[in-house]
């Protein structure tokens, strides 16, 4: 059974696959069109963290990777989960759940005692000012196009992190996306 599900898994999701065309197609077919011409939609990558749906601008995402074995860095700050080797490149991998108060402590995902990562978990490789950084997400939802009119300011009572990592909300149909400022979320 495991072999079959693995095959299926690969069929459903391939991180290096270019699905933007498909996404466009999907986005165009959900009835929200036609767009107001002067409104240029921006593409966001939506992902799940502890059951909530977050999104970051897709131009800040370099790639999406399955979770490789992570190597923990001794004495590092807790949100630094470890380092990963992505095709010979060494990347730090961060947890943002603590910053967003979604979790009390960072999950144990690196080192010899770590359990195998959940099947849906992924590492988003983001471009940041201080170089590429990986961010652990519980699952990737997909690419969404959000027009400026779909964006809202973050609700005042919302539990935010230490800093304002949440820059706004995006509403598209029934879905609500919490827009994340990756730079802030990864700031030390």
């Amino acid at each position: 059974m495991s072999r079959f599900s693995e095959l299926l898994d690969d069929f459903f999701y391939r991180p290096d696959e270019d699905v933007s065309g498909l996404q466009d197609f999907a986005a165009g077919s959900d009835g929200v069109l036609p767009l107001v011409p002067e409104e240029v939609p921006e593409e966001y990558l939506a992902f799940r963290l502890e059951g909530e749906c977050y999104a970051v601008p897709i131009r800040g995402v370099r790639e999406i990777s399955k979770v490789p074995p992570l190597t923990e860095i001794p004495r590092a700050e807790p949100q630094l989960l470890g380092v990963m080797n992505l095709r010979g490149e060494l990347l730090p991998v961060y947890d943002v759940k603590m910053r967003l108060r979604l979790a009390e402590r960072a999950p144990l995902v690196a080192g010899p005692d770590a359990p195998a990562p959940p099947r849906s978990a992924r590492i988003l490789v983001l471009r940041t000012e201080t170089g590429p950084a990986g961010v652990w997400v519980d699952g990737v939802v997909g690419v969404v196009k959000l027009k400026p009119s779909m964006l809202e300011a973050p609700p005042p009572g919302m539990r935010a992190g230490d800093r304002d990592c949440v820059v706004g909300m995006g509403r598209r149909g029934p879905m609500l996306y919490i827009l994340l400022d990756a730079e802030q979320a990864l700031a030390p």
Binding site: I73, P74, R75, A76, L80, V83, L90, P92, T128, T130, G131, P132, A133, L186
Partner: peptide, 11 residues
């Protein structure tokens, strides 16, 4: 350990 990891001690 470049970029973001420069400040790691002992590695």
């Amino acid at each position: 350990l470049g970029g973001r990891l420069q400040s790691v001690r002992g590695i």
